[in-house]
Design a binder for these strands. Structure first.
Lengths: 209, 209
DNA sequence: ACCTGAACACCGTTCAAGT
DNA sequence: ACCTGAACACCGTTCAAGT
């Protein structure tokens, strides 16, 4: 639709998002994007400086949209969990956003997450707001990115993947990997999203300790 | 030196590390690597399947070396700080390792960090060892990656960079960014490594709460 | 002002041909 | 068994030429 509209930065970024979601990060090429926009590859450069800027703009759109959809919550602790879960799910749904967030930290997208978290920490009466917010944002972005990066192997058969991994952990050298072996069973039955939120609770326990 | 030795997986990986450190991640090409090894690009493929495998092998070497250099410490809390600081500094010195760690989580390198942290958590008597270890490792890897990613802008003139950033934060819209504005001063005087370790302490406070 | 598309300077990877 | 290097199928980006 709207294939005959004039080219614009907005249309280009939106087409890039669709392409990234459809084909993955490798699928975004100027040639493929130009084809979808029914134009030449060079035309895009009139509106966007380069591929980096395009990726930044695309992931900013996703993060902004995501945070806009996170409803406020009266309890700060619960509000922080909702923001965290929102980012986690957004990066899970758009794995290419994860790579982008870790590549350009403290730009618009991360700063918006930082602000939202910080406001809730203030409401919580946290003493060391800066350190607490930094820790939480780093954790949220870090886990989301790592989750998205491994998602591909595991997506189709998550239970099977975890079972195989757990079996591998159990066969590790007993002298070198005692801890990993001892928690292999927990790996098999764990849920990434729940584990991520448990980490949020852990950090918040430290913040309010 | 040793330029006339036979090609081997080990020599290739070591040359790749030097090249990555010298020229950055973009500097690692099979052509450049072949030139340094005084051979043809195709020769490398006899020993290494592809570029991904080469990057994984190279970052495994760095992480293994790093963890080997972290001296044990009688106090678990202090030991965890030392492991964390070791990874942080290694990724800071070899930024390309960061990208690799977040790209392939739970492979050899990350698993070794997980094991080392987990052992200390057991020594600490932490109840929920799996969740605690997962949270700490995610945080350590996440922050290290994000720190390495932004390092380039900031490396030459760290104080100036932070001052500029802090000034930018203070000029943000007051209604939309109240928290960020309120901590701008702390950004200017903060130290990345100290802040990172403060986050470790925060999480450990939650673990033992 | 904006678009086109060929051209440039690269990549990772393959593979026939050598030793 | 191992190495060579040209060739293939791509990239991001530029730019003269068009409208």
């Amino acid at each position: 639709m709207a294939r005959d509209e004039a080219l614009s930065r907005k249309r280009i970024v939106e087409a890039a998002i669709v392409l990234l979601d459809d084909e993955g990060e490798d699928g975004l090429t100027f040639r493929a994007l130009a084809k979808r926009l029914a134009t030449g590859a060079g035309a895009i450069y009139w509106h966007i400086a380069n591929k980096t800027e395009l990726l930044v703009a695309a992931s900013d759109v996703i993060v902004q949209r995501t945070l806009g959809e996170v409803r406020p919550h009266a309890k700060p602790h619960e509000a922080i969990r909702k923001i965290a879960a929102g980012v986690f799910e957004a990066v899970d749904a758009h794995p290419w956003v994860g790579a982008q967030l870790s590549r350009t930290p403290w730009h618009t997208a991360t700063l918006q997450i930082f602000e939202r978290i910080g406001q809730q920490l203030q409401a919580l009466g946290a003493r060391r707001g800066f350190t607490s917010a930094t820790t939480l944002v780093s954790y949220i972005v870090g886990v989301s990115v790592q989750n998205a990066a491994q998602g591909r192997d595991a997506l189709s058969d998550r239970a099977g993947f975890l079972a195989t991994e757990a079996a591998r952990w159990k066969q590790l050298d007993a002298a070198a990997y005692p801890f990993t072996r001892s928690v292999a069973t927990q790996l098999r039955r764990h849920d990434d999203r729940a584990e991520f939120l448990a980490g949020i609770d852990l950090i918040l326990a430290g913040v309010t300790a």
